[in-house]
Design a protein around this nucleic acid. Sequence first.
DNA 1: CCTAATTGCTCTAGCAGCTATAGCTTCAAG
DNA 2: CTTGAAGCTATAGCTGCTAGAGCAATTAGG
Lengths: 141, 141
Amino acid sequence: MLTIGKLSQATGVKVPTIRYYEQIGLLPSPDRSRGNQRLYDKAALDRLSFIRHSRDLGFPLDAIRELLGLADDPGRSCTAADEIARRQLEQVNARIARLMALRDELGRMVRQCSNGTVADCRVLEVLGNHAFCAHDHAGRA
Amino acid sequence: MLTIGKLSQATGVKVPTIRYYEQIGLLPSPDRSRGNQRLYDKAALDRLSFIRHSRDLGFPLDAIRELLGLADDPGRSCTAADEIARRQLEQVNARIARLMALRDELGRMVRQCSNGTVADCRVLEVLGNHAFCAHDHAGRA
DNA sequence: CCTAATTGCTCTAGCAGCTATAGCTTCAAG
DNA sequence: CTTGAAGCTATAGCTGCTAGAGCAATTAGG
């Protein structure tokens, strides 16, 4: 049985974050000691590790909620889990593509800066006028 | 002179976002019509375009605030602007590197899925156990 | 056994950067 | 003159936490 602090150390998830996950129903409310402190068992450790790893891979909490639901039901087809992972992969790919376009733009901007005065600063000029850009880069990363 | 709606169309920044920028002091409060509606001039249009473009390039609002301050002072050296841009470029590069690692991990996960049952789903297995991963991928994207 | 430091508890508020809603006024077109 | 769009203010909500206040419980040292 682990206290919240030990669980935090074991998983790398901060204590307030663990409590937050409980609050939003991602982790079940654990048993308490006589002194009202949370006590976690191995199942909780596994579940939190799963959440942590999924977060590290960029899954949003809603997707993790779905994945946890699937994992609790071992007889089912895992097509749904595969789907969620595929969607996440697509999103990651899209973000990579977008960030590479930004990198190009920023790189060109910085390379053209001759460290003169603001009046003829390429950085500020480019920021002020999209027409100087090689590509489109609308939308958010 | 533009109403807020026209300014929104001209810049691609949504109306509530423009009001939000005014609220946090990123845009100056414009003059009003007799009917209390905001009226924007070309300077406001330029400033908002600058903000929009900087946001598109991923700059946080604080950095944009700094850049705007620099741009208002044409005689100064643009070293500071260059610095901000370089920092942003570094951040973008870091995010790209991290996302590519995630992509590899997700890709391997998905490729190994044989669409069987949840009990032997590679996706769920890998999520549950970091030891299956090729690399580290701690920290946030 | 007592004390001090650490850890735990609850509750509330704050962060970025918006977005949405409610309930009203003003404006432009027909 | 009327109707519908666009504007106004103010407040609350979104994701995923993080920080703080003000307590209670536990643990290590003396």
